[in-house]
Design a protein around this nucleic acid. Structure first.
Lengths: 235, 235
DNA sequence: ATCACTCCAATTGTCGACAATTTATAAAGC
DNA sequence: GCTTTATAAATTGTCGACAATTGGAGTGAT
């Protein structure tokens, strides 16, 4: 698997390339919401967006349904859609869900990943470790590198329900929070070490330990954010 | 809160009473799929169902979108929708997801449930314990009683993401499996005891223990099913 | 008989228009 | 002046028709 294809998987976890126009509109709006070009908490006007993206309202509504599936918007009958709010509480809630689900995914991955998958992931991690940005303790882990590792572990669980929920339904919401809260924490090098420890547990086929390490890893991120926001008086 | 309103919440966890016709059609089809009147794995014909429920295809497609959100159907672009398969593997996957999520919900419930909520839940549990069906060791826990307890613990987590996923997206799928696999396990009285232990841990505000007990509780159900199916040679 | 291609029927995706509901606005009453 | 009611504008929900795509029947060649 080439680096490009990996990257495309990270950016498009469900592997469902947009074939229909509703899919393409969904992708564009999803990107706009994640990046904050459509403000969090703002109301969505169907006629306006339909005109903006040059599609009919039916097609737009199909796209809105997918956005709702990703938890990026909320709909109320006969009232309309709103982009979800980006609250601190919401962020912490997501981290707790991830702690539970990715912990389980990690336990299952220790039992289900093939030796080849483990070897591949080790290669990815080694590449990360050698990269300049990680050695400088910046950036990388806040962008695609961290997501890549987590993404592969989730896939490694071979549990389709878990994969759907984490890579399909929660993925973009996590990206939205990362993006809008501007998460460039000082945990880069430490996160790398934790990733390596998790992978070692998986390679040892020690599911119990792997789960615990993954949960601690995510909980540490959460607490790091809590502390940071507390200092900023946002909590 | 009256017994009826509680029951209605159990049957309709999201509290969103069907106001639009698409909602009503969704409810009907959802019920038909859960009960097996529309066979698991079967293809869904939009024109046929639209005629059957006397609505236009647009409205039916809106209903299909909600069914997809509940993981009851799968859609492929330009091909169509199929009801999800009811496989043993799928059932076990769901249990693993529930183990992770409800375990976390239980941990959070121990920290977040009000004394009133705990007291109410104890009342419910006491009522269950005194009921004939439980004392006879049958039925009750396979129907609404068990779901009621789990439902309340989930609500008690006060984590909206968890509540959405468990009570909104996975709820009907769980019911579908229960219904179609005919789960009348001999765990009724034991499940009751486990519920009581979980609630005690919550009342003690011991989140760690509460989580572990809930996970064991769900894992025990899973293993019970695994054993049963293994005996029947379905595994 | 098998495989490939063509064409046709059926299904899904998209569109614009109409109906129902909600929200905003303005007038009337206290 | 404020609340309430009635009207109007805007938005959402629903409908039927058309366009695009898929799956299969049928034909012909090897």
């Amino acid at each position: 698997m080439t680096q490009e294809s990996i990257q495309s998987l990270v950016n498009n976890p469900t592997k469902t390339q947009a074939v229909t126009t509703a899919d393409k509109v969904f992708e564009q709006i999803q990107y706009a919401i994640v990046e904050g070009h459509i403000a969090a908490g703002s109301k969505i006007s169907e006629p306006e967006l339909a005109k903006q993206y040059q599609v009919s309202r039916s097609t737009l509504r199909e796209a809105l349904n997918r956005l709702e599936k990703c938890h990026l918007i909320h709909r109320k009958a006969n009232v309309g859609s709103r982009v979800v709010e980006c609250t601190v509480q919401g962020l912490l809630e997501i981290y707790l869900v991830r702690e539970a689900l990715e912990g389980m995914a990690c336990r299952l991955a220790a039992a289900s990943m093939t030796d080849q998958e483990i070897s591949d992931l080790q290669d990815v991690l080694t590449t990360h470790g050698n990269s300049q940005s990680v050695q400088q303790g910046v950036a990388y882990y806040q962008e695609e590198g961290d997501l890549d590792f987590h993404y592969r572990v989730i896939q490694g669980s071979h549990n389709q329900q878990l994969i759907n929920i984490l890579c399909g339904e929660l993925y973009h919401l996590v990206r939205m929070y990362r993006c809008q809260f501007g998460m460039n924490s000082p945990r880069a090098s430490r996160a790398f070490i934790e990733h390596q420890a998790i992978l070692t547990a998986i390679a040892d086929r020690d599911g119990e330990l792997a789960e615990m390490l993954m949960r601690r890893h995510i909980a540490a991120s959460r607490k790091n954010i809590e502390n940071k926001l507390q200092l900023e008086g946002k909590l």
